[in-house]
Amino acid sequence: MSPLKLKKGASSHSAYDLKTPFSDTVERHTLAVIVENEPGVLARVIGLFAGRGYNIESLTVAEIDHTGHLSRITIVTSGTPQIIQQIKSQLGRIITVHSVNDLTVEGPSVERELALLKVTGKGDQRIEAIRLADIFRASVVDSTLESFVFEITGTPEKIDAFADLMRPLGLQEVARTGVAALSRGPDAHV
């Protein structure tokens, strides 16, 4: 829980500690926060970010252990190294937070997001949309004669790129889940 203690044997990414902590460079970090699944826990986390003026780029939450009453909140946030450190320490102070893991420093991790995109169009536009969807490995989960709903999974950047391509082809609506992330390798955070 203590953000001052980096995991023993962490990879070269943990050289974080050696950077000047009060530098002005803004970094993007993905945090995995394991919380007790009590009513209000999300309000505590969001209230912390709002109250102290921290950024939230993306936030997802879902129960991950029903019997243990645990949920996992994945937060993508940005700030200077000092702010990131504060965010982790402040999260660690919340009584119902069990652990805070900074996936960005604790070693390599995988990040995935799911999105649904509604695209309407006719003729060539429609064919081009399907062709691009194929390249991005998006699948069609609903279709009518003038519309598709695509489902795509990938990094947020990949989804951004796909949405950008769909825009001129009749993109009407996007629903994104936000980022889910796990560290690579055998070690688990719970």
């Binding site: 203590s2 001052l4 902590p21 000092q82 504060q86 320490s89 402040q90 660690g92 102070r93």
Partner: peptide
């Protein structure tokens, strides 16, 4: 005793939690 008090506004060289 509170990690969030350490390095909050002033950089410290020897933090002891």
């Amino acid at each position: 005793i509170d990690a969030s008090s350490i390095n909050k506004v002033i950089h410290v060289d020897i933090p002891i939690l």
